[in-house]
């Protein structure tokens, strides 16, 4: 067979790839993502009603959401939600919790030190590194410009 031109082949393959249903996926992401955020608001209102002030409520809400996401991950439900919702369930804080709990569960068999602890941040680690890193950078910038 003749040698394949990699550029031509890449174009040829791209034509063969089935196109994802973008509109349908967006609707799913919007609905599920919106639902998670609305649920967060429900929790906030609920805890305020039972006597927490606004600052304490904004701590309690993510704690509860993270707990529920971890629970659903453990029960094997969150990945099924994520399959439909895509970014809708990855972007909210529940998705972040899922990305930490799922490798922790998966690598339990390699032990609590080299498995769970070491692998826990394989998915979420980059987000933490660059998230915290950029906040430090912006903080320094803010301090310098303010003076």
């Amino acid at each position: 067979m003749k040698k394949i031109n990699q550029k031509d082949y890449a174009n040829y393959v791209n034509e063969k790839i089935p196109k994802p249903k973008i509109v349908k996926n967006c609707i799913w992401a919007f609905l599920v993502g919106g639902l998670i955020c609305t649920f967060g608001q429900v929790i906030t209102n609920f805890v305020i009603k039972y006597g927490l002030d606004k600052k304490a409520a904004s701590t309690a809400t993510p704690v509860i959401l993270i707990f529920l996401s971890a629970l659903l991950t453990g029960l094997g439900v969150y990945d099924k939600i994520g399959k439909r919702a895509g970014a809708g369930s990855i972007v909210p804080i529940t998705g972040f919790a899922n990305s930490i709990v799922s490798p922790a569960m998966e690598f339990k068999r390699e032990g609590f030190v080299l498995g769970v602890a070491a692998k826990m941040f394989t998915v979420a680690g980059p987000v933490l590194v660059y998230g915290i890193g950029s906040s430090v950078f912006v903080g320094i910038l803010y301090l310098l410009l303010k003076k």
Partner: peptide, 9 residues
């Protein structure tokens, strides 16, 4: 990815 990770294939 880990099996329980909620990504789309």
């Amino acid at each position: 990815y880990p099996l329980e990770h909620g990504n789309q294939r």
